[in-house]
Write a protein that binds this DNA or RNA. Structure first.
Length: 464
RNA sequence: UCCCCGAUAGCUCAACGGUAGAGCGAGCGGCUGUUAACCGCUAGGUUCUAGGUUCGAAUCCUAGUCGGGGAGCCA
């Protein structure tokens, strides 16, 4: 007898097959006419399989009537068309094997709606809910699309280090990695902690970005992308920040900012299209229960061009708008959330790529424009989530880069290998970073980033 | 890290200085090819923690912890 998934068992074409399904009970409804309905889910799809369990089953009274949410079972039977509305097929059970019970008095996942706040405290069981099942299936599809998109375009998947010994990434506060005894670390004769005696012989940290390392391989293999965990020790308490998140960072030699924008736009569209094509049932769920606009938003984006605006033009738009802002709008100042949201949600009502920011508010490695004031930076803004991608064309001219590092008071020595890329066979190149969880958030409509990653890590919370 | 709000039954909440309640969930019973089923009954509490004010504190005050909304930092 074939073991098939609930997803397959729900297909009308499965009718007539004798099969086994394995999964977890979502609910049981009894009929005094002498049988029970069980709803079984195995994670393969949003929908459950309805099982009809007749009283003639050997263990009907002793076991079937005691099944409830959370119990695990294997069920043999025949798939047949369902006579009632609500499901195309159902399984007429001929045998039900109970693997594990779930005491209804203590099992936390009740047959009722739970708040996401409560479910976060039950992160080990929340994947058994409709919402988190859907989130994780969509998250998986997006990960699949990320790899497919880049592989099809000849990008090489590169694993940049998670532990980095250089404190020169500059993208944020870093977590320290050490094997020294925190109670009594070794000290130099002068008193400070002697990092030379730590595991790596110097201070080490968790990466905040693989970009600098990524550039080394782009400047050899042409096109690369990274997709891995990233860590920021910032004390951020918002619905769109995590201390541990997954980032995708493509980097490509001979790419200009225009190439970079084309890549970013095609990339996001591909992800959205794949989700719409392949996760229809889950997207129906999000549209119905989480955010009624998600489907239309994704469809709209997949079929229209992103708006491309320079920072300077964006400032002009904001200055002319009738909207009053809490923070000032002035050339040279960084845009605040409210400004970005106005541009993408109100003015353009679609994704916006802002480019050519003032150099003084952007990182040292971004390529300077001939105007001497701006750099080839780009931020992709989307409604509701805000900045989803940040990237730039990199400064490939050694003298310009060195001058800029001096202005930023950055020491040359730790960057010796980064500078070598400009000393030997330098090329124009560009790349960007995409927050994976922010994409999942945008696609699903989930309001809090903590609910689109299996085990969120945020200040004050590392349970599980 | 800053501003605002909150923490009471398994869950969501009410009680606003004077005997701690409801809905949902759960158990039992009834009804039904049911499907967020429905109807009845029952059980269920160290009111987040530590201090303080008061004859008396879930309620007022202080501190802490955690959560939510907004902001900053960013992806």
């Amino acid at each position: 007898m074939d073991w098939i998934s609930v997803k397959e068992a729900r297909q009308a074409e499965s009718s007539g097959k004798k099969v086994v399904i394995k999964g977890w009970v979502r609910t049981r409804r009894d009929s005094k006419a002498g049988f029970s309905f069980l709803e079984i889910n195995d994670g393969s799809s949003q929908g459950n399989l309805q099982v009809v369990a007749e009283a003639s089953l050997a263990n009907y009274k002793e076991e079937v009537l005691k099944l409830g949410a959370g119990c695990s079972v294997s069920i043999e039977g025949e798939i047949r068309p369902s006579p009632a509305k609500g499901q195309p097929t159902e399984l007429a059970a001929s045998a039900i094997l109970v693997h594990g019970w779930a005491d209804p008095v203590t099992y936390p996942m009740q047959k009722k709606g739970h708040t996401f706040e409560f479910l976060r405290s039950q992160a080990h069981l929340r994947p058994r809910t409709n919402t988190f099942g859907a989130v994780m299936r969509v998250r998986n599809q997006i990960a699949n699309s990320v790899h497919s998109f880049f592989q099809e375009r000849g990008f090489l998947y590169l694993n940049t280090p998670i532990i980095t010994a250089s404190d020169c990434e500059g993208a944020g506060q870093m977590f320290r990695v050490s094997t020294l005894d925190p109670e009594k670390p070794p000290r130099t004769p002068e008193g400070p902690i002697d990092h030379a005696r730590d595991f790596f012989g110097k201070q080490a940290f968790l990466t905040v970005s693989g970009q600098l390392e990524g550039e080394t391989h782009a400047c050899a293999l042409g096109k690369i992308y990274t997709f891995g965990p990233t860590f920021r020790a910032e004390n951020s308490n918002t619905a769109r920040h995590l201390a541990e998140f997954w980032m995708i960072e493509p980097e490509a030699a001979f790419y200009t900012l225009e190439d970079n924008m084309d890549l970013a736009e095609a990339f996001l569209k591909r992800i959205f299209k794949d989700v719409l094509d392949k996760c229809g049932e889950d997207m129906d769920f999000f549209a119905e229960r989480i955010d009624k606009t998600v489907r239309a938003t994704l469809e709209g984006i997949a079929s229209s061009a992103f708006e491309r605006v320079t920072y300077t033009d964006a400032i002009a738009i904001l200055e002319k708008s009738v909207q009053t802002f809490e923070f000032p709008v002035k050339w040279g100042l960084d845009l605040q959330s409210e400004h970005e949201r106005y541009l993408t949600e109100k003015h353009f009502q679609k994704p916006v790529i802002l480019t050519d920011y003032p150099r003084d508010i952007k990182a040292f490695y971004m390529r300077q424009n001939d105007d001497g004031k701006t750099v080839r930076a780009m931020d992709v803004l989307v409604p509701r989530v805000g900045e989803i991608i940040g990237g730039s064309q990199r400064e490939e001219r050694l003298d310009v880069l060195l001058e800029r590092m001096r202005e930023c008071h950055l020491p040359e020595e730790p960057y010796w290998w980064y500078l070598d890329l400009r000393r030997y066979g330098t090329v124009p190149h560009a790349g960007f970073g995409l927050g994976f969880e922010r994409v999942v958030q945008f696609v699903t409509g989930m309001a809090n980033i903590r609910d689109v990653i299996p085990f969120p890590r945020v200040p004050g919370w590392a349970e599980f």
